[in-house]
Design a protein around this nucleic acid. Sequence first.
DNA 1: TCAAAAGTGTTCTTGATACACCCATGC
DNA 2: GCATGGGTGTATCAAGAACACTTTTGA
Lengths: 229, 229
Amino acid sequence: MAFTYSYPRAALTVDCVVFGFDEGALKVLLIRRGIEPFKGCWALPGGFVQTDETLDAAARRELQEETGLSEVYQEQLYTFGAIERDPRERVISVAYFALVRRADHIPLAATDAAEAAWFVAETIPSLAFDHAGILEIALNRLRGKIRWQPVGFELMPEKFTLTQFQALYEAILGRTLDKRNFRKKLLALGLLVALEEFTTSESRRPAQLFCFDHSKYQVLTRMGFIFDL
Amino acid sequence: MAFTYSYPRAALTVDCVVFGFDEGALKVLLIRRGIEPFKGCWALPGGFVQTDETLDAAARRELQEETGLSEVYQEQLYTFGAIERDPRERVISVAYFALVRRADHIPLAATDAAEAAWFVAETIPSLAFDHAGILEIALNRLRGKIRWQPVGFELMPEKFTLTQFQALYEAILGRTLDKRNFRKKLLALGLLVALEEFTTSESRRPAQLFCFDHSKYQVLTRMGFIFDL
DNA sequence: TCAAAAGTGTTCTTGATACACCCATGC
DNA sequence: GCATGGGTGTATCAAGAACACTTTTGA
């Protein structure tokens, strides 16, 4: 450790694992790289951190630039620093994961990146750099996290049915859940508001719509409440 | 994103939150800074990442250099990137947390750092940089982690009594636990080996010593077992 | 009238909690 | 013989798991 920081420095990037839920499947947003290395390969959206922005801000900006997404739930995942993870030179990447509503609607204003697309999480093509590993870790984090934090709602539309929500949990956890037990436990949390609205014209019995009560959750959290589903 | 990485780069450091358990209290290892900025202040051990070492390796090396500790349990905690967190220039810090046995024994080969000392976790002096915030996050992580992973054993001597182990949990969680329930649940995990050895000469009834069965834990983990205490 | 998804309660099992006394040792 | 911490079992309560039928709608 010295007064000056004069030795060679690694480059710093952020990469975002963006999850969406659509057609009953958990999906991941990937971009096709327009430049070398790994030109033409699918990769996580991301890019270099500027010196006047925080890591969170860099992740938000890159997501906006490469996919057009903004205002999404986002949190830091892990930092990857294997020496040869970028073939050009030393690059450290701070990975984020993000959750977006309606993976269907936002099919991508690709800008820097040549192309962007949603992939079902179980069938991901091979990825550039160490992105496959990053994705794996993000999936594990998501699986753990939905049990203890109400992040699943970030993947739902504002108004959703209990069946949709259960399908989300089943997709993420990779197993079926008992309908009655799931609804009982979920409603017992007291965090859902039952709307006076129902789905229509899906050629079967209408389902009641609910929305998540963010403010109630915040109040309860301050009182020591812990979400557990 | 461009072919060359020619813009200014942030410096990259690692900082280690080192926990130990001694005299019934959870302790944190701090060093007194020998150089500016914050010269003379207490801070987390840490330093710059070299371009030919991984982040994990940098954390291990800094810990060794500044405190003499090696072969300790260590994992990445979080990466801090607030713009003004270092008064000199932009510095990104990847924080680690480490758990060491016998906080008492290893009272510090200070090298780079002027001085090093253990502090009880509840009474930490004011710290350099944003280290107080890092420590807070590390404590929360530890509190969460001991419930779901057998990391508590990393803070115990190889051979320990159940009472010692319970005291560790009480110190970390900040509340008392029921002795009979704690022991019942702990032993039911089947991960402790009861040794044919007892504590001696502590001027009271000898207590049986146990050790943690790492290999059994690994086998169970591969079978889907999840530690829960 | 049929197909397809929505909606709803009870029983049983399991794990969590609460709780008090005798034991072995050193002084 | 007494103070100190070591060691043990049961009864109650709450939460999780298993499980099947009726309802509403559109075609």
